[in-house]
Nucleic acid binder design. Structure first.
Length: 566
RNA sequence: CGGGGUGUAGCGCAGUUGGUAGCGCGCAGCGUUUGGGACGCUGAGGUCGGAGGUUCGAGACCUCUCACCCCGACCA
């Protein structure tokens, strides 16, 4: 490709709307252009890299036994009502009406469609296992798109669905996918860690995420350096500090005039937060919920949502709180009636807590679980954080941030049951198909790769995913010799099947080198009068500082060799 | 959904007490240059996000609205 013809210009200035480095680089290099929030056009350079990534993904899916299909983006809403997941996707589901006023959704994922599809063509255990996948656009109306391609509303995703006869067979499919995924990230030059994850709106049991560790990541990862146990913070379990557990004393009131927050109250009473109980109020599917947890801990809303089996969970508004008769700032579960109480296990971890007295400017000392209050539901709803202890060994947990570049789920049978996807087993019995699903966001993966492979000058593409392999960079193009050699080398390299970006522009050396660095094509080949005088050309890896001189007549061979050796 | 911020040329920005819209980059033409973002001259490019209002006069002031970005979706 001649750079002079390539659609998409490089730009010097850092775009104002771009915060993350990968986003800035993609805009500056002319790869992408935003149309509206979370919606992007992909220009040739971006598409080149995306195709490379897709092909790696496709190759690994095929090797793992996957068969590629293409399913509709446009999906009747009834499909989502049938599975019950329309509700859990909520406003993230793009909805529209056709001319007959029939409601449709733009597919945010394809479990429903694929399950429906399979239910019609799989009847026997002989048809299983089955792995179906596609690489195709998804639509999700995210409340807040961010970070360029990190979180968008329209994106290309590889989604594979596995269908098995039982849990053991699902395990095998799952393991196959884990291997394939590891291969994919390795081939893309992206180090990842595999962590335990919540299955969210997708549903299901076991779930793992592939995370690229990066400061631009949206997710917090809690991990143990000692045993390697790692999980998404919204899923992570940990052992918390011990609270005091002296023998229970009689409960007594204490005046706390104007002191409301845990910090204020514990400061005023000269105790630490660990010896208090905090109260937080939620609305779960329209029901007011009173949640209590030890004062030094935070509530993990994902765990809470799962514990309540709620589809919609949010903090209660002040109006709802007062309507429920709660005295904000002095609330506790002690003596509370007619409200569902959820408690974190931590309330049982100590004794003689300070909690609200449910009366203004007053708290209670020596509150003890069971004796003074009882929860309707008790469970682990605490957020784990760095400094807690590992539940698998006695190591101390650390926290880091990561970008989720892949997510795999064991779905089990809940969808196949709802969607009517059954098979006849070897004994002639009808059973629901056991499912798994496995996704990779291609654009996000590309962004993560750039985030990982860059320097102050620009992108440094790993060869396997670079939009071009060679940046052919003649200097002083008006020089007859340079022009002729560049043209002939360009043709020779392309004839060898190499992907060459030929900078045929009459730009100054600085401009060309800076653009070459910005675009990050792995191998730069410089042709100039200076080196040509000695019958040499210059070859340099984008990742290296130093260039290598090579005799002109060996240039094409040498370039091919270098690329093949990588 | 809450909080904060920004909308002026393709990009980055300036625009004073309200007086007929500018700079840099980029773009086009000509010339001189050019081993790490060269220089000169000439030129094109604007419904100042939108609507309404105040005013003799609005990019600026008022009201409404839309879009985009960032933070939080978090404790009473």
């Amino acid at each position: 490709m001649r750079l002079s013809q390539l659609f998409g210009k490089t730009q010097r200035e850092i775009p104002a709307e771009a915060d993350t480095i990968s986003h800035q680089l993609m805009i500056r290099s002319g790869m992408i252009r935003q149309l509206t929030a979370g919606v992007y056009s992909y220009l040739p350079l971006a598409l080149g890299a995306l195709r490379k990534i897709e092909n790696i993904v496709r190759d690994e899916m095929d090797k793992a036994g996957g068969q590629e299909v293409c399913m509709p983006v446009l999906q009747p809403i009834e499909l989502w009502e049938r599975s019950g997941r329309g509700v859990s996707f909520g406003k993230n589901l793009f909805r529209l009406f056709d001319r007959k006023e029939r409601e449709l959704a733009l597919g945010p994922t394809h479990e429903e469609v694929v399950t429906d599809l399979v239910s019609h063509s799989v009847q026997s255990y002989r048809d299983l296992p089955l792995l179906l996948y596609q690489i195709q656009t998804k639509f999700r109306d995210e409340p807040r798109p961010r970070g360029g391609l990190v979180r968008v509303r329209e994106f290309v995703m590889k989604d594979l669905y596995s269908f098995d006869i039982n849990a053991e067979e699902l395990d095998k499919s799952y393991q196959k996918m884990l291997v394939a995924y590891k291969n994919i990230y390795a081939r893309c030059g992206l180090p990842v860690i595999i962590i335990e994850a919540d299955s969210g709106a997708i549903g299901g049991k076991d779930s793992n995420e592939f995370m690229a560790v990066s400061s631009m990541g949206e997710d917090e990862i809690i991990y143990c350096e000692k045993c390697g146990n790692a999980a998404n913070a919204e899923k992570a379990k940990s052992i918390k500090k011990k609270a005091n557990d002296s023998s229970p004393l009689p409960m007594e009131e204490v005046a706390t005039p104007g002191y409301k927050t845990i910090e204020e109250v514990s400061g005023f009473l000269k105790i630490s937060a660990i010896d208090t109980l905090k109260a937080v109020f939620y609305m779960a599917d329209g029901e007011f919920i009173f949640v209590t947890i030890r004062g030094d801990l935070e509530i993990n809303e994902v765990k809470l949502k799962n514990l309540l089996q709620a589809t919609d969970l949010r903090l209660a508004t002040e109006t709802e709180v007062s309507a429920a008769g709660i005295v904000a700032g002095s609330a506790s579960a002690v003596g509370l009636k007619g409200i569902k109480i959820v408690a974190d296990e931590s309330v049982t971890s100590g004794t003689n807590f300070v909690a609200g007295a449910n009366k203004a400017d007053t708290h209670l000392r020596n509150v003890n679980y069971i004796r003074d209050f009882k929860a309707d539901i008790i469970g682990d709803i605490a957020l784990s954080c760095a400094g807690d202890l590992c539940i698998k060994c006695d190591g101390t947990l650390s926290a880091t941030r990561g970008v989720e570049v892949g997510h795999v789920f064991k779905l089990g049978t809940f969808l196949s049951e709802k969607m009517g996807a059954y098979f006849i087993d070897a004994n002639g019995e009808s059973k629901p198909i056991v499912m798994g699903c496995y996704g990779i966001g291609i654009g996000r993966l590309m962004a993560a790769i750039i985030e990982m492979h860059k320097d102050e000058k620009g992108i440094i593409w790993p060869l396997a995913v670079a939009p071009y392999q060679v940046y052919l960079c003649p200097l002083f193009l008006e020089n007859q010799l340079v022009a002729e050699k560049a043209e002939s080398l360009y043709k020779e390299l392309e004839a060898q099947g190499l992907e060459v970006l030929y900078d045929d522009r009459n730009e100054s050396t600085g401009v060309k080198f800076n653009d070459a660095d910005l675009l990050g094509i792995p191998l730069r080949v410089t042709i100039s009068p200076r080196s040509l005088e000695k019958s040499n050309i210059e070859i340099k890896w984008r990742s290296d500082k130093k260039a290598e001189l090579v005799p002109v007549e060996e240039a094409d061979k040498k370039i091919k060799e270098l690329l093949d050796s990588k």
